[in-house]
Design a protein around this nucleic acid. Structure first.
Length: 305
RNA sequence: AGGGCAGUAGCUCCAACGGCUAGAGCGGCGGUCUCCAAAACCGCAAGUUGGGGGUUCGAAUCCCUCCUGCCCUG
């Protein structure tokens, strides 16, 4: 049994300043940034997902940023596999992994592990989604009650996304989802310091508004136009990011720029709020102010020592 | 100035003939989350129905008046 690998995580709502804080740490260690953001993985959306700039990326190695085409998606399990492998490689080379991102589920999958469910073939998943569209989620919920009563009991009849997931897992593996969940996940190979950069919504909102203007100045619209030439399907996974879809509506559906920006801000704000809700319930977090760089550095130093 | 139309939750709007506790979507607030997660889902709060008066057992709804906005005519 190998000793656990020490990692430091910088978590927090969008716009809190995670990237800036992470760069402050880069000078203290031979750091490698590991992306833990489900949007910054996309190759064609750099500005729109607030990815580190090329200058920022030049400071130290960055991994799992901007590698996925727009039409592909990355589930939490697959993310955990990739990130886990990247961390092990970096650690083996004497580097210090710094996980930076705002996707709570990705952190959970990587750090706490998930049930070891084999991948479900896409055609199986698609078939259930199609059936759900035709029959409605309540009908499938009733069906789920028969094959997996435990899961059905905790899912709302309207929750089509999770009902379909439970049914496809049952079909693909022959075991109910609850059976998989009962098996404890493997012990985490990481010793993680979880730093949560917290900012109340009232302070976040003006920052988010300003960031939208900065993104547009930085060429967000041109970035979206370029992305369109590679993938023009607005339902593709990469287009579902906040900012991407509003800009798509502006470019392709005559949404005026001002309306686009207003919608963009609302959606970003709502997302930040959901993140705060998620992390509020999360245990083992050290909560600190995003601009408390000395404290962040001290905690990281102590953790890696 | 005259005529017409409108005013209902923060926003956009629905409420046959006057008749259950004035509803919905969005937003807001709170929550859930073990593989679409910047996703998906759930709960809650919120209205002196522009103001005032009148008719009526009962008015968002009918009548009068005032206020505000839009349109038409001059």
């Amino acid at each position: 049994m190998k000793p656990p690998i020490a990692v430091v995580c910088l978590m927090g709502p969008t716009g809190a300043g995670k990237t800036a804080a992470s760069l402050a740490l880069a000078g203290d260690f031979p750091a490698t940034m590991i992306n833990a953001d489900s949007r910054q993985i996309y190759r064609d959306f750099s500005i729109l997902t607030a990815r580190p700039t090329p200058e920022e990326e030049a400071v130290c190695p960055h991994r799992l940023f901007g590698f996925l085409p727009t039409e592909e998606k990355l589930g939490a399990g697959e993310y955990a596999r990739l990130a886990g492998a990247a961390i092990a490689e970096e650690h083996a080379q004497g580097r210090v992994p710094l996980l930076v991102g705002g996707t709570g589920l990705y952190f959970r999958a990587l750090l706490d592990g998930m049930a070891d469910i084999p991948p479900v073939p896409e055609h199986v998943a698609a078939a259930w989604r199609t059936r759900c569209d035709a029959e409605g989620p309540a009908a499938l919920h009733t069906r789920l009650t028969e094959v997996d009563p435990a899961t059905a009991a905790r899912l709302h009849p309207n929750d089509r996304q999770r009902i379909c997931r439970a049914l496809e897992v049952h079909e693909a593996t022959g075991k109910p989802l609850s059976w998989w969940h009962e098996r404890p996940p493997a012990k985490s190979p990481f010793r993680a310091l979880r730093l949560f950069l917290e900012l109340p919504l009232t302070e976040l909102e003006p920052r988010l508004a300003r960031r939208i203007d900065l993104m547009i100045e930085a060429g967000a619209l041109d970035e979206a136009r370029a992305a369109l030439t590679r993938c023009a399907d607005p339902t593709a996974p990469g287009w579902s990011g906040i900012g991407c879809r509003e800009v798509y509506a502006h470019l392709m559906e005559d949404l005026p720029l001002e309306a686009c920006k207003a919608l963009w801000l609302r959606n970003t704000r709502a997302y930040a709020k959901r993140q705060l809700t998620w992390f509020r319930a999360e245990k083992n977090l050290v909560r600190l102010a995003p601009d408390d760089i000395p404290q962040i550095r001290a905690l990281a130093r102590a953790h890696f020592a």
